[in-house]
C-alpha cells in the first residue's frame, strides 16, 4: 500500500484521533492555565510559598511524562481523566513560573507610584500587575501548550486516545506508515500551534 493510499483509506480514523487529541489537550490547557495563573498570582504574596510551589512544579516536570502517566494509573485508572490530570500537572511549571516572574519583575517604582496615588491592591493587580505580566504569562502559556500537545501523544499509552494511539499501535504492529503519519501530524500540530501562539503573543504585546 502506498503512502497516499494509506492516507486515503485511513483518513476518518486519523481525523477523529486528531480531533480527540486536540480536545484532550484543549481541556487540559484550559484547566492548566486557570490553575497556573491563579497559583502564580497567589504565590507572589508569600516568598516561602513561592519557593515551595516552584520547586514542586519543577520536580513534577523532571518526572518523565510516561512515568507520570503510569503512576496515575493505580490512582485514577486509565482513560482521559488521568491523561488530563497528568497534562495539567505537567504543564504547570512554565505557566506558574512565568506568571510569578512576570509579576515579580515589574519595576517597583511603578507599583510604588500606583500605591502612592491611591490605587487599591485589587485595582493594582487588575490594572497594573496583570497587564504588565501579560507578555511573560503568554510565553509561559505558549511553552506549556506546545509541551501539552507532545505529552498528549504519550498519554495515548494510558488509553487517553489521540494521535499517540496511532504511534504506539503502529510500533507494536510494526506498521511504519501508521507511526510516520502519527508522528508527522503531531509534529505539524505542535509547530503550527507554536507559530500561532507566537504570532498572537507578538500581536498582543504591541
Amino acid at each position: 500500500m502506498s503512502f497516499l493510499e494509506f492516507l486515503m483509506s485511513r483518513w476518518p480514523t486519523i481525523l477523529s484521533l486528531t480531533l480527540e487529541h486536540l480536545l484532550i489537550v484543549f481541556i487540559a490547557m484550559v484547566i492548566s492555565i486557570a490553575l497556573g495563573v491563579s497559583v502564580g498570582i497567589l504565590i507572589t504574596k508569600n516568598k516561602v510559598a513561592a519557593q515551595i510551589v516552584l520547586n514542586f512544579t519543577n520536580i513534577l516536570m523532571t518526572i518523565p511524562s510516561l512515568a507520570l502517566f503510569s503512576l496515575l494509573i493505580p490512582v485514577l485508572g486509565i482513560g482521559k481523566i488521568p491523561a488530563i490530570v497528568g497534562l495539567v500537572a505537567y504543564t504547570q511549571l512554565p505557566i506558574v513560573r512565568n506568571v510569578y516572574t512576570g509579576m515579580m519583575t515589574i519595576n517597583p517604582s511603578i507599583l510604588e507610584a500606583a500605591r502612592g496615588m491611591g490605587l487599591t491592591e485589587k485595582k493594582i493587580l487588575r490594572t497594573i500587575k496583570i497587564p504588565l505580566a501579560f507578555p511573560a504569562m503568554m510565553s509561559g502559556i505558549r511553552t506549556a501548550t506546545v509541551m501539552g500537545i507532545g505529552i498528549g501523544a504519550i498519554a495515548g499509552y494510558i488509553g487517553a486516545g489521540g494521535l499517540g494511539v496511532y504511534i504506539f499501535q503502529g510500533i507494536s504492529r510494526s506498521n511504519d506508515q501508521m507511526v510516520i503519519v502519527g508522528a508527522v501530524i503531531i509534529s505539524l500540530i505542535s509547530i503550527l500551534t507554536d507559530r500561532f501562539l507566537g504570532g498572537l503573543q507578538r500581536k498582543l504585546n504591541r
Binding site: S109, I110, E112, L132
Partner: peptide
C-alpha cells in the same frame, strides 16, 4: 505623588 523613577504605567 511624584517619584524619581516616575513610575509611569508603561
Amino acid at each position: 505623588y511624584i517619584i524619581q523613577d516616575i513610575g509611569l504605567f508603561p
